[in-house]
Amino acid sequence: MDKKWIKYTQLNPYKSILIAVFVGSTIGISIKYLINQDIRFEGLLGLIVVTAFQLYLVSKRDKKK
């Protein structure tokens, strides 16, 4: 499974970042909701900034190739 994911990330870097962000966010928000019984969306700003930065780095790397 690990080798398949690495190959997928090399073939589809943008999709793999978005999949990782979606899965991680879903798990994190679910755990936070179970503990606090509320959802606060202020923390998503950091997630958006980090995701945008990762997408920028991938696009920069793709231009070098």
Results as ranks from 00 to 15, higher is better:
residue 50 V to D: 07
residue 58 V to P: 06
residue 1 M to E: 07
residue 14 Y to A: 07
residue 48 I to W: 07
residue 10 Q to Y: 12
residue 36 N to V: 05
residue 45 L to Q: 11
residue 34 L to N: 08
residue 46 G to V: 00
residue 56 Y to Q: 12
residue 16 S to L: 06
residue 44 L to C: 08
residue 6 I to H: 04
residue 18 L to C: 06
residue 42 E to G: 12
residue 19 I to Y: 10
residue 30 S to I: 00
residue 58 V to H: 05
residue 43 G to F: 02
residue 13 P to W: 07
residue 24 G to Y: 00
residue 61 R to S: 14
residue 33 Y to I: 00
residue 38 D to A: 12
residue 63 K to S: 15
residue 18 L to H: 06
residue 52 A to C: 07
residue 58 V to A: 02
residue 33 Y to W: 05
residue 36 N to Y: 08
residue 17 I to P: 01
residue 34 L to W: 10
residue 10 Q to T: 03
residue 28 G to S: 09
residue 38 D to G: 10
residue 16 S to E: 04
residue 26 T to D: 03
residue 35 I to T: 06
residue 4 K to P: 03
residue 35 I to H: 08
residue 59 S to W: 15
residue 22 F to V: 02
residue 58 V to G: 03
residue 4 K to Q: 12
residue 64 K to P: 07
residue 54 Q to F: 13
residue 37 Q to S: 14
residue 55 L to S: 14
residue 25 S to V: 05
residue 46 G to T: 01
residue 15 K to W: 13
residue 56 Y to T: 11
residue 53 F to P: 01
residue 52 A to F: 14
residue 61 R to G: 10
residue 44 L to T: 00
residue 10 Q to N: 12
residue 45 L to K: 12
residue 19 I to C: 03
residue 6 I to L: 02
residue 53 F to I: 02
residue 64 K to D: 11
residue 26 T to Q: 04
residue 31 I to Y: 10
residue 51 T to Y: 05
residue 57 L to T: 08
residue 35 I to E: 07
residue 53 F to D: 02
residue 54 Q to S: 13
residue 31 I to D: 03
residue 15 K to H: 13
residue 64 K to H: 15
residue 31 I to E: 05
residue 19 I to F: 09
residue 65 K to R: 15
residue 59 S to C: 14
residue 24 G to T: 00
residue 58 V to D: 02
residue 54 Q to L: 14
residue 25 S to Y: 06
residue 44 L to R: 06
residue 30 S to R: 01
residue 37 Q to D: 14
residue 11 L to R: 13
residue 12 N to Y: 12
residue 24 G to M: 00
residue 1 M to H: 09
residue 50 V to M: 08
residue 34 L to M: 11
residue 3 K to R: 09
residue 42 E to F: 09
residue 40 R to I: 08
residue 30 S to F: 04
residue 51 T to W: 09
residue 23 V to C: 01
residue 11 L to M: 12
residue 46 G to K: 10
residue 17 I to L: 06
residue 14 Y to H: 14
residue 39 I to R: 06
residue 40 R to H: 14
residue 21 V to W: 02
residue 26 T to M: 08
residue 31 I to H: 04
residue 60 K to A: 14
residue 2 D to Q: 09
residue 46 G to R: 06
residue 55 L to W: 07
residue 54 Q to V: 04
residue 19 I to L: 10
residue 53 F to Y: 12
residue 5 W to L: 08
residue 65 K to M: 11
residue 32 K to H: 04
